[in-house]
Structures are given as C-alpha cells and as structure tokens.
C-alpha cells in the first residue's frame, strides 16, 4: 500500500489544476491518500511527491505537522473526545475515561480488533454542546456514558455505515470545477489587473456621480 489508483490519479490531477501553484494541493492529496488507505502510506507520499513536483521529504515534512494525518494504520473508527475547557467543565474527561474503560485501551491507541482508536482532542467547535465527540469527524453532541456505549454497539453491528464512513473518508461531496464555467487559476506572476477593476472607459451614457476624481487616478 499504496500508490494512487488510476481513478485517484485522475482526481489528484484535477485537484492540482485548481491551484496557481502545484504544491498547494499537498494537503488535499494527503487526505485523498488517507481516504484510499485509511492512513497515509509511505508509497502514497512518494506518489504525491511525483505528482506535485516536490521531494518525498517535503511531503513527509508537511504531513507530520498535522494531527489528522496518520502515518500508521489506525482503527476503522477514530473517536475524538474533546476534553478542552467547555467540555471539561461538563464532564469531558469522565467521558474519556469511560471510553477508555469500555474499549479497554488508553487514549492514543487502537483496540486489538482494529475497530476503534480513541483520542483525547482539543476543542472541536461544539462547545455549547458539551460533552461532545466525533467519530471519523462526525459529531455526537451532549453525549452520555450510556449513549457512548450505544454508539459503540451500533458501530460494531455496522448499523451506522451510511452515516459514518471508514476512517479517511472526509467529505463525501466533492467540489467539481467544470472547464466551461470555471474562471481558472490565477498564477502569482500573472500581473494583469482584473478587467472589472479597470476604470470605466470614456463617458458611458450616464456615469454615477460619486466615482469622481479618484476613479481615474489608478
């Protein structure tokens, strides 16, 4: 595992094409690799380096900075439990301990069956809904210990596969840029002034009063 599949190479090229500079596609492509394999494999990073035109070390340098990129396999379900201040005040740490006991592993590790990884995470922007967690980045608000147990049972039984895809799959809707309607990436050395910014040419029928002297001075 794993270079990109032919389908993913096509998608990768489409993503690269959106940016004025190829390297900007690096993080989206690392996500694509993680979507394909569940984690970011070494071969995938080498492949990304080829596609983007940087060295594998640069890809690793970027990948290793960001918490979401897993450089080793993790559970099918990554459960992020927030223990930051708003959640701590309302039992986030208790929830984390409950999760550790229920699953029999410590935060940061994966159950032996490869199903669950628990993480003790920072604020996930659901502070008024504390305590809260995410399963593969899908939210569960104001969750109790009982609801947590139910969630685990449902995930084990495969009852939530529609709602919670395997780890690595983030957005299931992708932006699609269509050649006929897109404006195109604007390269940093494209020195042209955008056409709509140019001062209005000569007297149009009835120019609005306030554009005044400054309009011509650019």
């Amino acid at each position: 595992m794993a270079r990109f599949t032919p389908d993913n190479v096509e998608l990768a090229l489409e993503i690269i094409d959106r940016y004025p500079v190829r390297k900007s596609a690096l993080i989206p492509l690392l996500h694509l690799a993680q979507e394909q394999d569940g984690y970011v494999a070494e071969d995938a990073m080498a492949h990304i380096a080829e596609l983007v035109g940087v060295t594998p070390a640069e890809v690793l340098g970027t990948a290793s900075f960001y918490e979401m990129f897993k450089l080793h396999p993790v559970g099918r379900y990554v459960i992020n439990i927030c223990t930051n201040i708003s959640c701590q005040l309302l039992g986030g740490e208790d929830l984390l301990h409950h999760a550790e006991q229920t699953l029999g592993v410590k935060a940061g590790s994966t159950t032996p069956d490869g199903l669950f990884t628990i993480e003790d995470v920072e604020c996930i922007a659901a502070c008024t809904e504390a305590p809260c967690l995410q399963v593969n980045y899908r939210y569960r608000h104001r969750i109790t210990a009982e609801e947590f147990d139910q969630l685990i049972e449902d995930l084990r039984a495969g009852r939530l596969t529609d709602e919670v895809p395997a780890h690595g799959v983030l957005a299931r809707v992708r932006q699609r840029l269509v050649p006929t309607s897109r404006a195109g990436a604007v390269a940093p050395d494209d020195g042209r002034e955008p056409v709509w910014m140019a001062p209005p040419t000569v007297p149009e029928p009835a120019p609005e009063a306030p554009s005044g002297p400054s309009a011509g001075s650019v």
Binding site: Y66, L170, W196
Partner: peptide
Amino acid sequence: GYIGRNILGSDFSVDVVLHWGAGA
C-alpha cells in the same frame, strides 16, 4: 452562474476553491 467566468453575464470572473486543513 454565480461563480466562475463572467458571473451573471458581467466582466467579473473568479474561481472559489474549497480547501481544507488537517488539524493544527
């Protein structure tokens, strides 16, 4: 026709690209 080339028939053109981070 709200985004892209010649928006609503005007000479205003711009692409809006969705980008996403990775936890930091």
